[in-house]
Simulated assay, not measured.
Amino acid sequence: MQNFAEWIGNKQILADRCEQRSITMLQALFNKKDQPLNAMPHLFHWMNFLHVVNQAEIGTDGHPNKGDFLPPIPFPRRMWAGGRLEFFQPILIGQVLRRVSEISNIQFKQGKTGELYFVTVDHFIYANDILAIKEQQDIVYKTATPSTHVQPKPSKVIEQPVLHYSFKHQQQLDSTALFRYSALTFNGHKIHYDRPYSMQVEGYLGLVVHGPLLATLLMQALQDHVPQQHILSFEFRANKPVFDFNTFYICGDIQAETAQLWIELEDGSIAMQAKATFQEA
């Protein structure tokens, strides 16, 4: 175990702008290209503040080399495991954006499948110098599992964390959809488009659907079902990967001012859980 405590407090400030074109392109991925907008949909800010480095600075996994803002943790698997967001002001098309980021915690844990590092990053996003979003992001680093050792486990139905379905929509994301999302977010991680790498090097069963993409699908479904509500907060946690060959379901249980949301696989297991709060706009 290496000690990366000196990286806690590391800060980064990035500038950007809310652009109509990038929003329209992501809307097209959700078959909503022709819907008029004057503000950025929630979670679309993940297309901003992209980590732009020269090709020579890209690691073997397709990510930028570690050791710039994030610590140089040597484990090959790097995953966005979850996060918590608060929304204060809408981000309007054309507004100047600024993100102030800081590493707030680094923890080492011994998991069932190997050693893990959890890195927590706090983001404060300003639109025209007014705080619009506060976000806390959880990044997990873990050792890889060779594909020869990966054996599919018998399907086991996991008890639902909620009992009522306000909606349940079937969804599947193929390799083209994953590639388009990778392109829009400038995400070079090979697990999303390079099948041999994903399976043989990182030990997955196929191409991995991006965690932020699944979270955005949940948010899109929520906003479709409560269009007159103002979303106050959203938090999500990934439980297991979703692959490009999986059929899955976008599910939600909507109450007066809260919603439980989840990604459900065909065997009934939960791949991602989320919850949101909202109020009348």
Rank of each mutant, 00 (worst) to 15 (best):
P36T: 01
R99M: 15
I130Y: 11
G83D: 03
M25G: 01
Q200F: 07
L265W: 09
Q35T: 14
R98C: 01
G94V: 07
N65V: 14
L85F: 12
Q95M: 02
I13M: 12
T113P: 07
H63K: 10
G82L: 05
P227H: 10
A274M: 14
I73G: 04
I125K: 03
E86I: 09
N246C: 06
G67V: 10
V100M: 12
I254D: 12
Y117K: 13
F124I: 03
V157S: 11
E115Q: 13
T145L: 13
P146I: 02
V53D: 05
W262Q: 05
A177P: 01
E235Y: 12
L26Y: 13
L205G: 10
F234T: 00
M79G: 05
P64V: 00
A5T: 12
K32N: 09
E266F: 01
G82M: 04
Q20A: 09
G188C: 15
S155P: 06
F75E: 14
N187G: 13
Q273Y: 04
P76D: 02
N105T: 10
I254L: 15
R21S: 14
L37G: 00
W7H: 11
V121F: 13
Q27A: 09
L97D: 09
G111N: 03
L217Q: 01
N65K: 15
I130C: 10
R17Y: 08
R77N: 06
Q107C: 09
R78H: 13
P154L: 05
E115I: 08
A259E: 07
K240P: 06
V157H: 13
L50M: 08
R84A: 00
A39S: 10
K156N: 11
L163V: 08
L261A: 06
H192S: 05
I106N: 02
K66C: 09
K66N: 06
I58F: 05
Q35M: 07
E257K: 11
A274Q: 09
Q171S: 01
F243C: 01
T143D: 11
A274G: 10
A177D: 14
T216Y: 01
Y165E: 12
R237Y: 05
A259Y: 09
I8G: 05
V157L: 11
G252P: 08
Q171E: 03
T185S: 00
T60D: 13
D253G: 04
Q229S: 15
L97K: 01
I250C: 11
F108A: 12
Q228M: 07
V96S: 15
Q20T: 08
T113H: 11
T145I: 15
I263P: 11
S175E: 14
S147A: 03
D244Q: 14
N105Y: 05
L178D: 00
T185K: 00
I103H: 08
I106G: 03
G82D: 05
P72L: 02
P227C: 09
K33Q: 12
